[in-house]
């Protein structure tokens, strides 16, 4: 997989989530995603960025325009927060540890073509999501 373009954005305060949404929208358009796929990707980015801020205590996201057989957008969210003790449970619809609606992770996975999550208690969490042009 070839990376055509890459950018890193900080997620430290609520306003940064808006900046992430704007940057992801821009790269989704450049990657020739359709309007519905753009909307799904930006919504997913917003959900994960909020998790990074609220549960991961802040972190960053790498925004990549990638090319395999098709072009697409890959987002990698990283934080050094407390980590998620029970990933399986965190991926269940309706489960929430805090102020959300419990749709964040499981709902976001449904919006994406690719979804990976890795977490270590005490070390942090990395979420990678991708959407490909059709």
């Amino acid at each position: 997989m070839e990376i055509l373009q890459s950018d890193v954005l900080q997620i430290r305060q609520p306003e940064d989530i808006v900046l992430v949404r704007t940057a992801v929208r821009k790269i989704a358009i450049a990657s020739k995603l359709g309007l519905v796929d753009q909307t799904k990707l930006v919504t997913a980015a917003s959900e994960i960025a909020r998790n990074t801020l609220d549960y991961g205590l802040g972190g960053e996201v790498r925004v990549d325009m990638v090319r395999d057989a098709r072009t697409g957008v890959r987002l990698t969210f990283t934080d050094e927060g407390p980590g998620i003790p029970d990933l399986e449970r965190a991926m269940t619809d309706g489960w929430t540890s805090g102020k959300g609606m419990g749709l964040g992770l499981s709902g976001t996975r449904r919006l994406m073509d690719e979804f990976q999550i890795a977490s270590k208690v005490g070390e942090g969490t990395t979420v990678t999501i991708a959407k490909w042009s059709r």
């Binding site: 753009q38 909307t39 919504t43 499981s106």
Partner: peptide, 14 residues
């Protein structure tokens, strides 16, 4: 509500 937003909301489960 924009159509793409409605589609996304349903898939998100919201």
């Amino acid at each position: 509500m924009q159509p793409a937003v409605a589609i996304t909301l349903v898939e998100l489960g919201l």
